[in-house]
């Protein structure tokens, strides 16, 4: 009898372990997300600086509106891109070019090939899109980190696999290895922390391109506000309207 109870106990532990691990990873990702975007809806002003061989090549400005349900609207604000908009609703994407004034449905691959990969600026959370395991601990720049092996749970994610390093002490993101669909390491992301409105937040994400070695990108989060838009703005047909200043 005692033997049976012991076996049932062990079985329940072994069955429950993956679920407990999943929940732990989910919680870790949620904590990390809070350092990138602490609001569920809002507007993030972003400046993307592209470097070639260590020299500043281009600067791009974007306003990103985010809403729950993996909805984001990117307004291109640089002079040479003025009027462009990109809408992302889960795994579906639309691009509106000012010259044609038609919302065009685009594929995940076309989104990935966009200027500065708008997916990098429009997706600011991991917990909704990735699941995985904690595979160990490593020290990055003197910081003890938890190493998470993450797999995308949606077909439209920019990077189907991510190896994420979170600081063990407070779970802030330190580094991420971003892999494309062919499982090549595409970019290495580093996160710089700072004080924003009394909160510790990611202020700069640096992306070192591993496919084009001489290139790197800095994504500066200039401001985060809880300014929201009505649901109409997240309808592809609405993109032809000009209710938002570019």
């Amino acid at each position: 009898m005692f033997k049976c109870i012991a076996m049932l106990f062990l079985a329940s532990i072994s069955l429950g372990a993956p679920a407990a691990d999943d929940a732990r990873v989910k919680a870790l990702l949620k904590q990390a997300d809070d350092y990138r975007l602490a609001i569920s809806s809002g507007r993030v002003e972003t400046e993307v600086r592209s470097f070639k061989g260590g020299t500043l090549d281009k600067t791009r400005l974007y306003a990103v509106y985010l809403k729950p349900g993996r909805r984001s609207l990117v307004l291109f604000r640089t002079a040479s891109e003025r009027g462009q908009k990109m809408l992302m609703l889960g795994d579906d994407y639309w691009l509106m070019m000012p010259a044609s004034q038609r919302p065009l449905r685009i594929t995940a691959m076309q989104k990935l090939l966009g200027e500065a990969s708008t997916g990098d600026i429009a997706t600011m959370t991991w917990s909704e899109d990735y699941e995985g395991t904690v595979s160990g601990e490593e020290t990055i720049d003197g910081e003890t980190c938890l190493k998470l092996d993450l797999l995308g749970q949606r077909k439209g994610v920019s990077y189907p696999r991510i190896v994420l390093y979170l600081a063990k002490k407070d779970r802030h993101p330190v580094q991420a290895e971003l892999y494309v669909a062919s499982d090549k390491l595409a970019k290495l992301a580093r996160f710089r922390m700072g004080e924003v409105d009394g909160r510790r937040q990611v202020t700069v994400m640096t992306l070192v391109d591993h496919l084009q070695k001489e290139r790197s990108t800095e994504v500066h989060y200039l401001s985060r506000t809880d300014k929201t838009l009505s649901d109409d703005y997240f309808n592809p047909a609405f993109l032809v309207r000009a209710d938002l200043t570019q």
Partner: peptide, 10 residues
């Protein structure tokens, strides 16, 4: 109609 049946095809 415009359909996106996969990551690369429209």
């Amino acid at each position: 109609i415009s359909v996106v049946p996969g990551e690369a095809l429209e």
